[in-house]
Computed example of a mutant assay.
Amino acid sequence: MATNIDRIKSDLDRLVALGSLLDLSMVRSVVSEEEFEKLMNGVVPKDKLKAFIKKLPKFNASYEAWYSEALVLIKQVLPDRVANFVSLYEKPRGRKEVEYGNYVIQDYLQGLVVTQYGKTKVETSAAVPQFRQQLAILKAAEARFASSLFEIKQLVQADVFDRELGSARELLKNKFVRAAGAIAGVVLEKHLRQVCEDHGVKIAKKNAGISDLNELLKAGSIIEIPQWRHISMLGDIRNLCVHNKGSEPTSEQVKDLLDGTDKILKAVS
């Protein structure tokens, strides 16, 4: 599964990058050299513009392959946008006349220009917004994929934590009090670390523990004072289970740690 996810992400990144170059290639084909230079002003140094243009992919030669690959990925990641993506490429059935609004990329590829009474009614530049809309859909698929990965990661992690807490409860039931508390403490620490990462909180300390992570979350206004106090109390019980060999934690204390950790997993994200 991880291999497929990496491949899809790599393909999306590559297609979005190629699509951006195809957009420039299409624009270059429908505007004058002078207009294109103005558009690229500040983007590419003037003395390198000709070399840049020369390296641009030829739209007509590269688009079909790009479209086919992009369509497959959109079907996988954003299936509700497939019809829209296709409609920007294919000539609409029953189209009686070509207008600016229904000019599609197939028309551009065939070099279709519509004239009326000796004047140009629709020209190939009408395909530019159509392709840009396709590229926008692909970028939306990229964003959706990133969001899906986050959701998958959260679901998998939640399942792992639930199973670990379940194991801790079983240990507590069988009177392995310290072991149950140690496992619960690990789950709590992992969760707090993940919350810090999700919120972009920098963890400077190399081996930050529950107390350190709790302080960071409070300083970042990610948790409120009552939650901070609750986590501090849970951290104290965890330390009692792991470090304090002179005093035995009670079953009631470890049960509080297990229940409290379960509550924090659901309330702090």
Score class of each variant (00 low, 15 high):
Ile74Tyr: 10
Val177Leu: 03
Leu265Val: 05
Lys58Tyr: 02
Arg14Tyr: 05
Glu164Tyr: 04
Leu258Pro: 09
Leu88Tyr: 07
Ala267Met: 06
Val177Tyr: 04
Ser167Leu: 13
Arg132Val: 10
Ser211Gln: 09
Trp228Arg: 12
Arg28Ala: 15
Ser148Ile: 07
Ile74Cys: 10
Asp13Thr: 02
Tyr117His: 09
Ala184Gly: 06
Val104Gln: 11
Val122Phe: 05
Glu252Ser: 14
Tyr89Glu: 14
Glu90Thr: 08
Glu99Gly: 14
Gly118Leu: 10
Pro226Cys: 05
Ile264Trp: 02
Lys75Ser: 13
Val242Gln: 00
Gln130Gly: 02
Leu22Thr: 04
Ser68Val: 12
Ser211Lys: 14
Asp159Glu: 15
Ser221Val: 01
Ile237Gly: 07
Gly200Val: 09
Val44Arg: 02
Lys245Tyr: 14
Lys9Glu: 10
Gln253Tyr: 07
Ile223Arg: 07
Asp80Ser: 13
Ala168Asn: 03
Arg144His: 11
Leu217Val: 08
Glu90Val: 06
Ala146Asn: 06
Pro129Cys: 04
Arg7Met: 09
Lys175Ile: 01
Ile105Gln: 05
Glu189Trp: 03
Ile223Gln: 08
Ala51Ile: 11
Gly118Thr: 06
Ser25Lys: 06
Asn4Ser: 05
Leu172Asp: 02
Ala208Ile: 01
Val254His: 12
Gly19Gln: 06
Tyr117Ser: 07
Ser247Ala: 13
Lys139Ile: 03
Val242Asn: 01
Asp80Arg: 07
Val31Trp: 06
Tyr108Phe: 15
Val98Lys: 13
Met40Trp: 01
Asn214Gly: 01
Ser87Tyr: 00
Ser251His: 03
Ile264Leu: 04
Ser251Pro: 01
Asn84Met: 12
Arg163Glu: 15
Val82Trp: 03
Leu73Gly: 05
Ser269Cys: 13
Lys96Gly: 14
His230Ala: 11
Asp23Cys: 12
Met1Thr: 03
Phe150Gln: 06
Met40Pro: 01
Leu172Ile: 14
His199Lys: 09
Ser251Val: 02
Leu71Arg: 15
